[in-house]
Design a protein around this nucleic acid. Structure first.
Lengths: 303, 303
DNA sequence: GTTCCGCATGAATCGATAG
DNA sequence: ACTATCGATTCATGCGGAA
């Protein structure tokens, strides 16, 4: 089943109930600007998703990434939030295996961001501390991808105020590094700046807001990447939509969204939420289409 | 050339000038409790180390890890500080290749800690932000390894921080930000208060103190792992000693040390520093032995 | 002694330009 | 075309001198 929710300014959210291994074929080649997703981790959430065994994870995921490679625009980006499971006391290698296999498919592994989960659960095991970070793997199709770095700049700290008060003579000229790295500094360049570029470590708390879905990331996370890699009117895809965080954020940021979810409960949650937001934002959202062999929700149509 | 510096309580630091691919054979099987090292990264420091090309990195490193596997005690731990280079806009895979190759050698990849470099270099590029983290890969020989988790406990989060801040404002005690990071030396001040186990994300600044060696990590880093994986009298090995940070910290913490360094300049720095500390601590350090084909430093003997 | 403040420094990377 | 060098980007930290 597919719902297409049209918002103002021709922005729409297309929600698909189904298995992304099958539903991705309905998406056109080179049509998506950003894929942001957090697939079911191996063997986890087994009660909800059926679980994929760690040993078969790559085999299971590769046909999907192949389709993602097809639908992504050449200047688009794929951000994959993933974490390997500990199996029998050892970190399983399916994530690094996946990176290598995706490179063979043609993906470029351009970056690995770290999501530091500031408020991760307390707890430890006899041979292990709490795991409070996850990988955000960035893949691209080409080296010329769009990146809107200014959009995620952060306010400069107090440092600027303190440092820029009194400029010495060396500050006014470029001061080259002495170790031959070619790295230098020119302090006077910073005058008047209010913002600084971030790093590839993201400090964000986990969110517990949406209790009906077992694997929610904070809205900040997709928001940051949507800002960084898309502009208004672009297309954002989440093939493992869950309760719809990514697509909802995309909607709020005036990006078109395509979300695919296999489980009816989550699909309905996402649909309800996104319709409600469209409602409150627009006063005239339109549920354009709804079709499929099996109707799992009551038809919903407002104004 | 080898120097053996004996400290009080039978603690000694054995410093070896030479190539670790050759010198490791002098170390007995199953004799080391912790290996903590930061090998030269691919292609970096080429002016000093000759540089290993990313494509040949695994091939170059594997014979060394094989020896390390031999000398490590069954309940010991190997912590490898490493980072992949960006080559032609893409993260090179030599680090993940290495993990896989080491597993085939018999290593268990038990954990990956993240070192978040709070003060990483400035700079951004058209398609990349500053890289402000590094991997600390934990490998083990068996699943039953020693881990002294209580030794690295940190004050409880918010609660303790707030309390600490109030204290410091009224009493002007100390810089609270250091304590907040949880990994400083001031933790001992808070014994008896509420403590929590840390996570696998370590927030530490890179060090700018040691001007003669270009690639120093902060002392806090080896200190944390030495606390976690060894007790007094244990043996710590660093096959890429550099200017001796790991062995120096081990010495201060009353662990025996073995450090191997190929470059005479760094070796001498390490030796001088470790002798000096032994001197100041003990009043009676003994330089027990010094032998080798080539003497690169003047014999040094103090009592 | 202690606090304050200026200052040099560093496992970097990309694209343009030169050889 | 292919490789080597160069310039640009920009900030937390510890140290040391000053107050």
């Amino acid at each position: 089943m597919t719902s297409i929710i049209r918002h103002m300014k021709q922005i729409e959210s297309r929600l698909i109930l189904g298995d992304c291994t099958k539903e991705l074929v309905t998406i056109k080649d080179n049509s998506v600007n950003l894929i942001f997703t957090s697939p079911p981790y191996a063997d986890s959430r087994s009660q909800t998703y059926g679980g994929v065994s760690p040993d078969k994870y790559v085999e299971w995921f590769l046909p999907i990434t192949k389709e993602l490679l097809r639908v992504l625009k050449p200047d688009g980006t794929f951000v994959l939030n993933i974490k390997e499971k500990v199996v029998n006391g050892e970190r399983h290698t399916y994530v690094i295996d996946l990176i290598q296999a995706m490179r063979e498919q043609g993906w470029l592994w351009t970056e690995e961001f770290i999501w530091h989960k500031k408020n991760s659960y307390p707890g430890k095991w006899p041979n292990r501390f709490r795991d409070s970070w996850e990988r955000l793997l960035q893949f691209n199709k080409t080296r010329k991808f769009n990146m809107y770095q200014e959009e995620v700049m952060v306010p400069m700290g107090e440092w600027a105020n303190r440092r820029l008060k009194n400029l010495s003579e060396t500050d006014k000229v470029r001061d080259p590094s002495r170790v031959g790295s070619g790295f230098g500094k020119k302090i006077s360049n910073w005058i008047g700046r209010e913002k600084a570029y971030p790093t590839n470590v993201l400090h964000m708390a986990t969110e517990t807001r949406n209790k009906s879905h077992s694997a929610v990331f904070p809205e900040d996370l997709p928001e940051w990447f949507i800002k960084l890699f898309t502009k208004q009117g672009d297309w954002v895809l989440d093939p493992f939509m869950g309760s719809g965080t990514t697509i909802r954020v995309a909607q709020n940021m005036k990006r078109n969204g395509i979300g695919i979810e296999i489980l009816p409960e989550y699909f309905q949650l996402a649909q309800k939420d996104i319709m409600a937001r469209a409602n409150s934002q627009l006063k005239q959202p339109v549920l354009l289409e709804k079709k499929g062999k099996y109707e799992t929700t009551k038809p919903k149509r407002r104004n």
